[in-house]
Design a protein around this nucleic acid. Sequence first.
DNA 1: TTGTAAGCGTTATCAA
DNA 2: TTGATAACGCTTACAA
Lengths: 367, 367
Amino acid sequence: MPRSPALAATERTPRRGHGRVTLADVATAAGVTAITVSRYVRGEGYVSAETAERIRNAIGQTGYVPNKTAGGLASGGSRMVAALLPNIANSIFGETAQGLAEGLSHAGYELMLGSTSYSMEREEEQLRAVLGWQPAALVVTGRHHSAAARALLRATQARGTPVIELWDHHDPGSEGFAQVGFNHDEVGHAMAAHLLDRGHRKLAYIDSGVSEDFRAHDRGVAFAAAAKAAGAQVQLVVGAAGDAFDAGRDVIRRLVQGAGKGRAKKALAVSALAFANDHLACGALLEAARSGIRVPQDLALLGFGDFALARQLLPPLSSVSLPRHAIGAQAAACLVAALEGDAPAASATLPWEIVARESTGTEAPKR
Amino acid sequence: MPRSPALAATERTPRRGHGRVTLADVATAAGVTAITVSRYVRGEGYVSAETAERIRNAIGQTGYVPNKTAGGLASGGSRMVAALLPNIANSIFGETAQGLAEGLSHAGYELMLGSTSYSMEREEEQLRAVLGWQPAALVVTGRHHSAAARALLRATQARGTPVIELWDHHDPGSEGFAQVGFNHDEVGHAMAAHLLDRGHRKLAYIDSGVSEDFRAHDRGVAFAAAAKAAGAQVQLVVGAAGDAFDAGRDVIRRLVQGAGKGRAKKALAVSALAFANDHLACGALLEAARSGIRVPQDLALLGFGDFALARQLLPPLSSVSLPRHAIGAQAAACLVAALEGDAPAASATLPWEIVARESTGTEAPKR
DNA sequence: TTGTAAGCGTTATCAA
DNA sequence: TTGATAACGCTTACAA
């Protein structure tokens, strides 16, 4: 059926558009062509003050919102960064995500977020999924990825898309990706040193129950190595899965059982415990109080993460304070710099610090 | 400088593509046309087993990744949902984000996440930003938005894009957006009832120091109304900004000061406190222990959120357990259903529950 | 300062 | 079962 001119005027052309207001609509309303509106919107090229005014009004009237997917398609670049984190619910990665979101958003980038549930397999899936959106840059967590994921990351980087690994900083730089984080071996060493300095010779590291938390394992291995090198005894214990507080309590309960009770009571098998995270440590601290174990006299406890709770308990928990938010913020800054400057992303080591509180003794370490 | 034929053959055509492998490349490799590959990739329409096999190989060889922005542009639909949350770092919204991410990802949608920092202004900005990405659906937090943001949401919904408000559920349904959450007035009432039932007649609600946490305010107002209706005394106190634990401690300190000390000591001005969140409540609980205030005999404490820590302290904290993760998961389910079924998104009220622990007394309420 | 033409990588539509 | 063609809404390149 041929369309009458009148009808055509009402409904415009057939299958034209998906109902959204386009650049062309604004242009018509402003009495210019689309490219002029485009220039105005992007703030590039020359647009006379008079024309700009007309366009401004037209945009206001029509409620135009630029279509960024079309823009990206045309220009071959997008203002969107995809990030893959093990877990967003976790306060550790939550703050990192927050830092990323803030930093990117201020620079005019959007954030596409994927949660990998600490699984390399999921990471690979998510990677394929977000890659289809042509992100301007890619953020992943840690330096352990499946072979296929590594290949995808390498190919992506080869095409000029910056890739950053978060939360780790290891010298050989695995594949040459930029890294924003810190070295977990160093933290493991420092945790051991902190306890050794205070005279402890029987140590244990309580690892996270999350099997793919590689960074926690790395710290544990380094902790053990440092302790052994100093001639101390070390155990590596894996905390129970599930609620971390309960897992921490559980560690203390088993320790007390091992020591026997009543008249058969012996000294605890270890004198200091280092944990993969503060929740484990706080659970242990609370259980110690109930078991009559004096902290730090009978047992010193050292956490990791310096959560808000750590300094609230009695005794306050010594812990490793982390640049949780800074990692995200710094990654955002690195990416934006790389993107604007058309350079590869830069790595950054971010500072962490052992905050000595009562749970590992208030004494200054003997020199 | 005119390009020689040989050169042209090497670099293909001028300004063709941005270096990515396209459908056309795969098609050439497989000896078919682009549309056939497209059909194979989407699993739609007919592709012979033989052709499919050739395409599969071609995809493997070329490492083709479908360009979802181009696809979305052509089809007028995207498989991406944008969500705006007040804060991702916070464990409350973190878990919701996690639920959303998981639910959407399983259904083959990506998640674009924005953090509004509890600011309506930021929300509006972010809204404009994500709208340009043509999301398939929109998720926002709460029912309070700036006028402009509301207009944008309404226009978006009118165009057929589902809009869901999270974490709230209020009858008039503000603008008719679907809501996935619960009614905070009811929670406020229930919190008051919980304390009134246990015989308390001098109550206070400690509100969050975050001024745009409207839901916490709503609960406080409802709490006060319920208490007054029962003939009890109520105060509304606003916690200090900054660390929530410290703000909670601070409340107790001021309460103790008010009661005087030593020989001039009087009874506390209130006998029960309800809090805007568990961090405030836990801070108060810890400070009470240090101040020699017996919980619940001298002072009953009721939290909100039932964080993992709540049941670990002594005495364990009574609190309101929330469907943090479920809100995200349910919202994802609602959206996917709406998107696949082409229907408007459905609202859902999710269950919460007051978990009575020792901090408000173990006695069964008198009937 | 503004415009024309072509193309980005994909899918809808119609035809074969 | 496969293909040709024309969009989708925008930007680059070049022209005026």
